[in-house]
Design a protein around this nucleic acid. Structure first.
Lengths: 207, 207
DNA sequence: GTCCACCTCGGACATTCCGTCCAATTCGTC
DNA sequence: GACGAATTGGACGGAATGTCCGAGGTGGAC
């Protein structure tokens, strides 16, 4: 009845879940069918057998060690999770399952905010007025969107790029010198198209 | 032997100091002579009788309730303090002393950073990539410096402006479009001079 | 007071960047 | 395969950037 993979990995999942409880869930996915094999301490009320949202994982390929993340995930109720995934292989070296640990960062962030606010002077930030390597940040934002939507940057939809531009514009990226060529490069479009899309967005910003 | 003001206010100072120990000092200043009357739990190894650095206080005038701050103060060793001051008046209503409480925020900030870093995904912040109205921030930074040094912007020293430029440059202001004229205006110097000073700073940045 | 070294300033200038436009090409759809 | 829409590279005018210089100004030494 019980899947042999579950038998094999169950102690690991249970141990991690118990260590981080109540703020983390551990999920064991079937690599082939994209189904959930087992969940310990579920945060997002998924049950065994549910389809997992694992499709994206194959696309991220940091070339190598079968460990992904940590990356950020948003739950529908707004909680923010830090997630890591590990590809588990059977004795032949074939991927047979994927183990994901999702840690709810919300309480930690609340605590951090509490400490940071304590006795804070009226002028909050010390320095760090502008992002130093904003180009990196641009690529991160684009990368996040790409991961979220499962399309590599080269074949984003026109609407994708519009939305991404809206995001970047709202973040004030275009107030930075030399930003346009960088963003165009990150979005894999030409400078001309970027200006066209940007004009379109600014003409009628979408909600 | 003991100053009557010290006798009167001593319990207050001692109580506050004991409550916040070991991360806060309480200092009682003489309003007229700018001397330290008493210190509880000193952080900055000042002793009774030392000249206080209170001169600035008169310049900050939030019109009214004799309470100043909290504002930020830097110790020479880099610790950051949150300070509040209260003007204490005698029975005639004349200012007779000033009570300052300096709270060392460093441990709190370290703890906050620790929590914030725990399990943080690689992409830290959600949004708020670039300061939206950076011009305002430039004026704030210059304003802070001016207040700190008690010279209006028109007659800052050359070295003042160099230091201020270093600060702004480190904050990345000059990566923003159209920043140079704004900064020149805020520093009350010409564009030419700004470029000259900036080159001088970048040639030999001071420690 | 005079001199001199050092700054600052306004303006000229070359350079780079920005934003727009267009004709040619590619793409997606039917 | 034909058609309309989107994208592209390139060209262009205008704006911002960064450099340079000569004309004053300022302050200190003597």
């Amino acid at each position: 009845m019980t899947d042999p993979r579950v038998r094999r990995w169950s102690p690991v999942g249970a141990a991690i879940a118990r260590l981080l409880a109540p703020h983390a869930e551990v999920v064991l996915h079937d690599a082939a069918t994209d189904r959930v094999l087992a969940v310990w301490n579920p945060l997002s009320r998924r049950a065994t057998g549910d389809p997992s949202m694992l499709g994206e994982l194959k696309r991220l390929d940091p070339a190598g060690d079968d460990v992904y993340g940590p990356y950020e995930k948003l739950l529908s109720d707004g909680r923010r999770l830090s997630s890591v995934s590990a590809v588990l292989r059977d004795d032949d070296g074939e991927p047979s399952a994927v183990l994901c640990v999702n840690l709810d960062r919300t309480p930690l962030e609340q605590a951090a905010a509490l400490l940071a606010a304590f006795a804070a002077p009226t002028a909050p930030r010390p320095e760090a007025l502008f992002e130093q390597d904003w180009a990196e940040r641009v690529h991160q934002i684009v990368g996040a969107y790409v991961r979220e939507h499962g399309r590599p940057a080269e074949r984003l939809t026109r609407d994708d790029r519009l939305a991404l531009l809206a995001e970047l514009d709202a973040a004030g990226v275009f107030a930075v010198r030399r930003a346009v060529p960088v963003v165009a490069g990150a979005l894999k479009i030409s400078r001309s198209t970027l200006y066209a899309l940007l004009a379109e967005h600014r003409r009628s910003p979408r909600p």
